[in-house]
Design a binder for these strands. Structure first.
Lengths: 336, 336
DNA sequence: AGTATTTACTTAAACGTTTTAGCAATCATT
DNA sequence: AATGATTGCTAAAACGTTTAAGTAAATACT
């Protein structure tokens, strides 16, 4: 039943040639190493016949290249990261890499365990959405260094290759939309996580409201990431109590969940409150109200990250690190 | 800068012991192989000091176990599969496995290329959402067989381990809900893909409408998977033209996109048409109308699939194949 | 004291590739 | 015919583990 896996030596034996010859032919180095054309054909034919599939473990061990890109996101079940994973998969596949993933849940311990695994597996490169205490990312690459590209957010002071978006501008524009529509008092909602993208978005919010006459002090609700629902319910209650008429959410999860809560508990207010959010999940287009938001160019980001990473993998020399900031897009929808 | 990676021989050299000893200690086989406790402590301490990380390529080559589970879904960007991937990741991680994924786009060529890759990489097991022409799955495991579990759908006649849900019942119930609410003429929407789950759902639809007095013939719109939007627009137009008042969608993508189209083009009809769909994406809870749907127990399915798979990996002997059918849940929402 | 057993390690082969160095045989050149 | 170049392959080491088999020393048993 379970036949044995075919290996180079099987082909070699059947053809009465050496393993080296077979290897050179099948890895496309026949000409370069002066293997005759006839021999090459014979080898290839035999390999086809026997349905040879290289043992990548062995190859990797020998070459030191695994052909794997490690991807560490916050949560692959979050459609934003799901899409990111998909685009990264596509691009990586084009470049001849497979993707192995892990979800950190914004937890630096989980992330560091994921990164350690990647390390053990000798992935050729890592794309990572860093989390709060990301010294770990640096710490990880202490011993020997795996090419790494950050995506979505910066990591504290770490000067690494990076692909992100103009979060600040996005937040400014989202809040300006609200203000221009006449909303007077906007509250911002963010997780209690010190993440660069969230902070930039918060700064954009502060900038936007500072520019406006009849200004008010920033109102920021910091939502405990480990107890989101309960916190958010309270925060929204409080926001409405102090008569906020605009709500600015720093990412899709906060926006979506808030929408859910608002619909359940404050249905009548829905027409009066202006809600804007980062990211553009499907639901914001079909919900009532439809949510104006700032869409990040996930496909470009993902492609660019892979491109950068593969570049880094191939030219370990060129140590210049690139920090790429792509432009998001305002998606205008109704407010009622 | 780039220090060398630490290997067993480095530890052995520093301690003046053999590589074998170090290996035995670090792989927890010290007692079993009568390595002294003191030695064990020394080795472990040194490994910690030098921050040793095993080279998994080498280990895998030797042991024939990669510690990787391959996951082939239709599209990781689809939240349904994204969630599945996440639960599988969790469970696999608990069991000591990493997950490598690939998206087939329902294309048997892509799937077979993904499976070949998994094969080459000697993944220890495969969880796969099969596609239309899935002889390939069988074909793949021709030579030597990798434990495989199907998830979400069956594969033609292949008698393999499988985790899916009671699609037929779900479809029956969804359509009965519509009929009981007084909808008279229901159209079903499905992709032009011969997938067991879709077919079961379609059969459920047919069963439900057959049971009802004043019955009508099944109305099935088969949407070209490679040209979904255009086809769906036409199909919906046609359905409304022939005065269908109920729409039954066989999966989330069809439901979501149709909702989008309906909202754009037939806003006034939205209150009169009853829409029900499989899967329970977030948007169905926040949209207008909110969509009654059949939620599959994705977490259980995923867990069960991993459990089954790991079982298979560990007892190659026990050849009995298990086909598990889990129960979904009706999520009742409004229709207007 | 002499033999058997146990303890604590070491040796070395093996996993399946890749790749460098080398060896014959053939061909070209004088 | 002797020399040099070229062609077409082979041999064998190496990648870093795991693990079966072996060995020497210490301990137990008669």
């Amino acid at each position: 039943m379970t036949t044995k896996r075919i290996k180079l030596s099987d082909i070699a034996r059947e053809l009465n040639v050496s393993v080296g010859t077979v290897s050179l032919v099948l890895s496309g180095k026949a000409k370069q190493h002066r293997i005759g054309e006839e021999m090459a054909k014979k080898v290839i034919a035999k390999a086809d016949e026997l349905d040879y599939q290289a043992n990548i473990m062995a190859r990797s061990l020998r070459t030191g290249k695994s052909g794997i890109i490690g991807l560490a996101v916050a949560d692959i079940a979050n459609p934003y990261f799901g899409r990111m994973a998909r685009y990264i998969e596509n691009e990586a596949s084009n470049m001849g890499y497979q993707v192995m993933f892990g979800s950190s849940d914004e937890d630096s311990n989980k992330l560091s365990s994921i990164l350690n695994t990647f390390h053990s597996r000798q992935v050729d490169g890592i794309i990572v959405v860093p989390v709060e205490n990301c010294e770990l990312v640096g710490g990880m690459s202490n011993n020997d260094t795996i090419p790494t590209v950050l995506i979505d957010r910066e990591c504290n002071n770490l000067q690494t290759d990076l692909v992100c978006t103009n979060n600040f501008d996005g937040a400014v524009q989202l809040n300006e939309v609200l203000l221009k529509k006449g909303y007077k008092k906007i509250a911002a909602f963010v997780y209690n996580l010190r993440l660069s993208n969230f902070e930039e978005r918060l700064n954009g919010y502060k900038k936007a409201i500072k520019n406006v006459e009849g200004t008010f002090n920033p109102i920021v609700f910091s939502i405990d990431f480990n107890n989101v629902e309960e916190n958010l319910v309270k925060a929204l209650e409080e926001a409405l109590k102090i008569r906020c008429d605009g709500l600015f959410f720093v990412n899709n999860s906060l926006g979506i969940l808030s929408l859910k809560i608002m619909r359940k508990r404050y249905k009548k207010l829905l027409t009066k409150i202006g809600m804007v959010s980062f990211d553009n999940p499907e639901v914001f287009d079909l919900s009532t109200p439809r949510i104006t938001c700032w869409e990040q160019p996930v496909e470009e980001m993902s492609k660019k990250a892979v491109e950068l990473l593969v570049g880094k993998i191939n030219n370990k020399n060129e140590d210049k690190c690139q920090q790429i900031k792509l432009k998001g897009k305002l998606i205008l929808r109704d407010f009622q």
